[in-house]
Design a protein around this nucleic acid. Structure first.
Lengths: 241, 241
DNA sequence: TTTAGATGTTGTACTTTTTACACTAATTAT
DNA sequence: ATAATTAGTGTAAAAAGTACAACATCTAAA
């Protein structure tokens, strides 16, 4: 270990980008920092990795300590290591991301490092501290990519949802509009939705049917190597000589 | 910085997975280690990141120092940080990968940390030191994915190549067989190949036409957000009730 | 109670892409 | 000359993607 000690005065952290969806808007969970640097600023929930802790474990622990959220699947996205990204020294950070149903979790925090935790609209953020804006953007890109190749959208919706809600979610993530009939055809043809035979209540128009996601079937298809893909929005070959 | 120093005795490294293609076989560039741990074992070319060096810069520098290869585009893939992955202490490593044309580079090394550098068949490796096998596998998965969505195969072939060579490359990466006529139709329909109006020489059969990759057009299409995709091999919906 | 307003739901024809499949062409070695 | 070997190509059927508009169901307001 002597060699290593000579080499470095450094540290590593994890940062979590947790996406949620609410009021037709894509949100991300931020904490109000309780420590320097950037004390009292809204930032991604992230902290140091313990010496005897794997990265994935650290990400989960930090998320729980800072926001109260536990039992979510976190996926590693990218590592950020610009020399001056942390004002106190050389700190590289491994970014993780996850999708959760906002309603299913109660966000709470009472730690010294995170004074509050709150959902913020992704589209309204643009000056997060450190390189957190860049990290958020990278995770958003990942989400955008992922939603086209896997039916991950369901992770963000309540257990029961309407097709229109699902479409709005896709539109928010892909930042594009989708054609209603084709979207529904495509989604339903995956056979991953269970029609609950219930309808919305309390809306001032024809109530929509409610569906839930067939997670069991999805996992079985995944295990079989099935390929999910959403095609709409793909550019055409026209104009390429 | 005091806080950071208290937190950690740790280090980070970069590891490079450089793929090449030769004799119908997918290869990876390994070095023979000149230092403990795992002295004299074949391993991925990787080393410590300097305190004042960005991760991407470190990856490039390490690759050049250990193998003589410079001027390649390295892409970050994943970070590996299992607590005991390095026998000397806590060391996390950021894995990078790249594709190169073996013929275009002369591999050489004369450093103390890397005694030799050589190409090895990916399929024959299975006990690399550290967690390098896992890193290699992750990069191979990335390549497999990437080849379906971008015409990256050309990066691995000589400047002039035949359609059959290209097909064999795709088959090696995807670990599957492709149907000749459909493959050619698909590839040619991308309009990214320039027919050189030359043919192979010195083969004991009908010589194949030679093509080169139209890099300019590719980069222009990329800039326009064009979507490249190789479809064959996708599973069918059959059997999904 | 009628109607306006809002959103939900569905079908079809057309185009494009994918797939499956087998024969002829060009060259060298014997 | 011919055998051996790989190169090169066309087409029809199936599947998927796209574009498009009318009717259905509910509430709220007149």
């Amino acid at each position: 270990m002597t060699e290593l000690n000579n080499f470095f005065k450094s540290a590593f952290t994890v940062d979590n980008v947790i996406f949620g969806f609410d009021e037709g808007d894509l949100k991300v969970l931020l904490i109000k920092r309780g420590e320097e640097p950037f004390k009292n600023r809204w930032a991604l929930p992230g902290y140091f990795v313990y010496p005897n802790e794997d990265l994935d474990t650290a990400a989960k622990r930090v998320l729980e300590e800072m926001t109260g959220i536990r039992n979510v699947f976190l996926e590693q996205v990218k590592t950020f290591g610009a020399v001056n990204r942390h004002p106190f020294g050389r700190v590289i950070t491994v970014a993780y991301f996850s999708l959760i149903r906002i309603d299913n979790y109660e966000v709470q925090t009472s730690s010294a490092v995170a004074r509050k935790a709150e959902w913020h609209s992704v589209s309204k953020l643009k000056n997060l501290p450190f390189d957190h804006q860049e990290i958020l953007d990278a995770c958003f890109q990942r989400l955008k990519w992922m939603v086209r190749y896997r039916p991950v959208g369901f992770e963000l919706l309540p257990n029961k949802f309407t097709l229109t809600e699902l479409q709005h979610l896709y539109e928010a993530i892909l930042e594009t509009e989708l054609e209603k009939r084709n979207f529904r055809k495509k989604i339903l043809s995956m056979n991953l939705l269970i029609d609950l035979d219930e309808t919305q209540e309390g809306v001032a128009h024809r109530p929509a049917r409610l569906y839930k996601f067939d997670k069991d079937k999805y996992e079985q298809l995944l295990a079989d190597g099935f390929n999910f893909e959403l095609k709409e929005g793909k550019k055409k070959m026209e104009g390429v000589s």
